[in-house]
């Protein structure tokens, strides 16, 4: 993984979050939630700063980041796509939907497209089993998705960007 240099501003931001939680090692998970919420992901360099501030080892921070699926060390695409792989969605065909997303975007689960527009992930049960199979793009939920609908869902965001950049 290429080294990144954190700006002074980013380091300051991380320090502030740690200070908000009293620089307590026991608040590590809360700190990680906050920092990921602000930066989008938790690269090694960010973990180093957190470890120093909370006075715990980097190994411990890394251990926690990699344990929980909610934390990510790679940046997500502009439009993160999550396919629900809960049982209800699985038996109603979410595997085929996932295969179609992989095919259309030419990426695997956990990867982003070259232009960083889309990233692909699986999640376990959104709790909208009545709409199975479910796909989320950002915060938006798509229900009863069939492989045939995948192309249009992706197009929605490609077009969305096109009009946005035009207007800008």
């Amino acid at each position: 993984m290429p080294k990144i240099k954190l700006s002074e501003k980013t380091i300051g931001l991380i320090k502030d979050v740690c200070a908000d939680f009293g620089n307590q090692g026991s608040e590590l998970i809360n700190v990680l939630h906050q920092v990921q919420g602000k930066l989008g992901y938790l690269p090694a360099e960010v973990q180093e700063v957190i470890a120093k501030e909370l006075n715990i080892s980097v190994a411990k921070v890394y251990g926690v980041v990699t344990f929980y699926s909610f934390f990510t060390m790679i940046p997500m695409g502009e439009f993160p796509i999550s396919i629900c792989m809960g049982t209800a969605c699985y038996v109603r065909g979410s595997e085929q939907v996932l295969a179609e997303f992989k095919r259309q975007l030419s990426i695997e689960v956990g990867q982003s497209t070259a232009d960083n527009k889309f990233s692909l992930n699986c999640l376990r049960c959104v709790g909208a089993c009545g709409l199975a199979p479910v796909v989320m793009v950002g915060e938006k939920v798509y229900g009863r998705v069939s492989p045939q609908m995948v192309k249009n869902i992706i197009a929605e965001y490609k077009e969305g960007c096109a009009t946005e950049s035009k207007s800008a």
């Binding site: 307590q24 090692g25 998970i29 809360n30 934390f71």
Partner: peptide, 25 residues
């Protein structure tokens, strides 16, 4: 409120408690 971070095993009492203490669940 304490937040989980996506680990099924944290439904187990002792794992849940470790997670609340900021550790691996």
């Amino acid at each position: 409120i304490r937040y989980g971070a996506g680990a099924f095993v944290c439904g187990e009492e002792t794992a849940l408690i470790h997670s609340m203490e900021g550790k691996r669940g």
